[in-house]
């Protein structure tokens, strides 16, 4: 992150995004998730997907995890799940489209800028 996006701001935005997603009616909406692929048969893991875009997201995820833990040292499973959801919501499709949860919103409602908490430029 740079001097213009202090950790407190990033943590605030991240938690706000987690809370926004947490307010969705989970029983009726689509919830994007990133799931780790674990092969219990193979002695070696599958080939690494070397897509640059994913490496950037993974780096951002690790950074935001650190920021979140600094703010909430007693993270629970639901917090972990919500953090993954925030990233999946933002990056599952592509950075060029609105977050998955906003696909259905009218353009005026989703014309917000990407918050610093999820911007690769703020690392």
């Amino acid at each position: 992150m740079n001097a213009r996006t202090p950790a407190n701001t990033i943590a605030d935005e991240l938690i706000a995004d987690m809370e926004r997603l947490g307010r969705r009616p989970y029983a009726e909406v689509g919830v994007p998730m990133f799931l780790v692929a674990e092969d219990r048969r193979a002695s070696t893991p599958p080939a690494v997907d070397a897509a640059t875009q994913w490496r950037d997201v993974a780096t951002l995820f690790a950074d935001r995890a650190e920021v979140l833990i600094a703010r909430k040292p007693d993270l629970g499973v639901s917090d972990v799940a919500r953090l993954v959801e925030v990233f999946a919501d933002r990056y599952l499709i592509a950075s060029a489209v609105p977050p998955f949860s906003m696909i259905f919103d009218e353009p005026a409602e989703r014309s917000r800028d990407l918050p610093a908490s999820l911007s690769m430029d703020s690392q």
């Binding site: 029983a27 994007p32 990133f34 897509a51 997201v57 993974a58 690790a62 995890a65 972990v80």
Partner: peptide
Amino acid sequence: MNVQLAQIAAAFASAAPINAINYHNT
């Protein structure tokens, strides 16, 4: 770091995850 979160971050760093969308009632 939280152990579970550390494991996920490490897994994400080593390979792209599987993309999923979870629905219940529709």
